[in-house]
C-alpha cells in the first residue's frame, strides 16, 4: 500500500507528486499544492463545493482519486481566475452579492461557467437545474441565478456585436 508517484497537470503547471492511492483529488490539490480555493464540504459527492474542471468537464474532486487523474488536464478556481476566463462571472457575483460566506463560490462559478459554455442562453429554470448539485446555504440561490443570467445576456450581446 505504498505511495504512488504521479504527474498532475494543474492550471498549466506540471507537478510530480508522491501520494497515497486513497487520497482524493480535492485533498491533493489543497494539501500538496496549496490550492485551497477548491473547498471541501462533504467528501461524499453531494455538496459540490469541490467542483473543478478535469479535461474540460466539471468534476467533483472529492469523488476522483488523484491517482486516477494522472495525465488529465486539471483546472481549479486559481487557474480560471488567473486566466481571466470567468472574470465576468466573478464581477457579476460580486455586484449582485451572489455570495455571502463564499465557501460554495469557487465551485459555483466553475459550474456556472460550464453551463454557459454548453448553453449560452439558458433560462432561469435551466440555470437552477445546472447548479442544483451545488449547495449554497447563505444566498437562497436567487442572487446566483441573477448573476449567471446577467452574464449570459452580456455575453450574448457581446457576441452579437463582435
Amino acid at each position: 500500500m505504498g505511495k504512488h508517484v504521479i504527474t498532475l497537470m494543474v492550471n498549466g503547471e506540471s507537478h510530480r507528486l508522491e501520494i497515497e492511492p486513497r487520497a482524493h483529488l480535492a485533498d491533493v490539490l489543497r494539501d500538496e499544492l496549496a490550492l485551497t480555493g477548491t473547498h471541501i464540504g462533504c467528501e461524499h459527492g453531494v455538496c459540490g463545493a469541490c467542483t473543478i474542471r478535469v479535461d474540460g468537464a466539471i468534476t467533483r474532486a472529492c469523488l476522483l482519486l488523484a491517482v486516477q487523474a494522472e495525465g488529465a488536464v486539471i483546472e481549479t478556481i486559481e487557474g480560471l481566475s488567473d486566466s481571466g476566463e470567468i472574470g465576468d462571472l466573478q464581477d457579476a457575483f460580486r455586484h449582485r452579492n451572489a455570495l455571502q460566506c463564499g465557501y460554495c463560490t469557487p465551485a459555483m462559478l466553475i459550474t456556472a461557467q460550464d453551463l454557459l459554455l454548453h448553453n449560452p442562453n439558458p433560462d432561469r429554470a435551466t440555470i437552477r437545474d445546472h447548479i442544483s448539485g451545488n449547495y449554497c446555504r447563505c444566498t437562497g440561490y436567487q442572487a446566483i441565478v441573477d448573476a449567471v443570467e446577467t452574464v449570459a445576456k452580456a455575453r450574448q450581446t457581446a457576441g452579437e456585436r463582435a
Binding site: 459527492g45 467542483t51 478535469v54 468537464a57 466539471i58 468534476t59 469523488l63 459550474t111 442544483s132 448539485g133
Partner: peptide, 9 residues
C-alpha cells in the same frame, strides 16, 4: 441522474 459533474465521470 444526479448532477452534471457526476454525469461527467
Amino acid at each position: 441522474v444526479a448532477h452534471a459533474a457526476i454525469r461527467n465521470r
